[in-house]
Simulated scan of single mutants.
Amino acid sequence: MAGTLTHGEQLLKINGAELCVETFGDRADPAILLVAGSAASMLWWDAELCERIAAADRYVIRYDHRDTGRSTGYPPGEPAYSFTDLTLDVLGIQDALGIERAHVVCQSMFGRTGLILGVDHPERVASLTFMSGSTGADDLPPPSSDLTMPAEPDTSDAAAVVEYVVAGARAYAGGSPYFDETAIRALVERDVARARSYASTLVNHYAIELDGPARGGFGDIAAPTLVVHGDHDPVLPLPHGEALRDAIPGAQLLVLEGAGHDLPEPVWEDFVSALVRHTERDRA
């Protein structure tokens, strides 16, 4: 099952890796490239959400990071890449799809990809959106004291892995009234089933080199920037999003009321509306 592509998916050889990519909408429209968070395949950008964005005249791209989904995997604990490599993957996807400049949306830990793109490759970025991100400053609040993560599972037991990931998603939702365990469980079951190695998915992104841009920091980002943050986020409480907004010249902040460290369906309308405004054609 993990080796079978669904309709619309394609495997592209990029930057020394094989990446699974799926697109939605008309390639003539402004491109929005969705970069999922750590240990998250493209499935965590829900297909219905992608369709909603595409319906607003946007060309939407989602993909599996290395060590997620159907993309190239490495042995658990031995990722042979850095954040610079992952950033070059994004540029390689743009090249393969004929996209000179993309509106890039980066989630959580993978905001570092957006940072490197915005600082070191500004000519390839039409705009940036950071979702559930942070500057990483030492004076920002720690994760919520209520955040309790489950014990790591036996990765040879698929059912135990599913329970572990569902429990983690529940914790990351931060008590959000929008957490839908039935929907999350269905997503996780699909995610585990289609992955080349979910054992690698669970650990490898946390073992990669956390390198950054060569030419500066958040204050050097010139691209129009939107920061999106849930007010229930227990991992990176809201002050992290506020600090990120303040660190990037001209950045705007959208607070998703009732959302945690995720993007639950009840806030999609607010997110899509803000993203469409942020990616108007005259910015491309």
Rank of each mutant, 00 (worst) to 15 (best):
T84I: 13
A96P: 12
A126R: 04
Q107I: 14
L147D: 06
R124N: 11
G133D: 04
V35Q: 02
S273P: 02
K13H: 10
R101S: 14
G73T: 13
G241Y: 06
H240P: 01
G219F: 03
R245Q: 03
L147I: 13
G217Y: 13
Q94W: 11
P30T: 06
W44P: 00
L254D: 00
V104Y: 05
F130W: 03
E181D: 07
S176K: 10
A2Y: 14
H261P: 07
D270C: 07
E269C: 03
P264Q: 05
A159Q: 13
A167N: 09
A102I: 07
E209Q: 15
L263D: 01
L238R: 04
V105S: 04
H232I: 05
R27I: 15
G92F: 07
G25Q: 02
F83T: 02
N204G: 10
V272W: 02
A55D: 09
Y164W: 13
M149N: 01
G114W: 03
G37E: 07
R124W: 14
W45H: 08
V119K: 02
A247T: 05
D85A: 11
T87G: 07
L226F: 11
L263P: 02
P76I: 10
G69Q: 01
P75Y: 03
P249W: 08
V203M: 05
D233F: 07
E280G: 14
Y81C: 02
I32A: 13
T72Y: 03
P76H: 08
T279K: 04
P239H: 09
D67L: 01
D85Q: 11
E48S: 08
T148Y: 15
F179A: 06
A96E: 14
F218S: 04
D270K: 14
T68Q: 01
I116A: 12
D146R: 15
I184H: 08
R194F: 04
A102T: 10
A243G: 02
S176E: 09
F24Y: 15
Y172L: 14
S38P: 06
A39C: 14
F130E: 06
L254M: 03
T225N: 00
Y198Q: 03
P79C: 07
C106R: 10
L43C: 04
E48M: 08
G77N: 01
A243F: 05
M42I: 08
Y81T: 00
S273T: 15
G168T: 15
G133R: 04
F271N: 04
C50G: 00
D67F: 00
A247W: 12
I99K: 06
A17F: 04
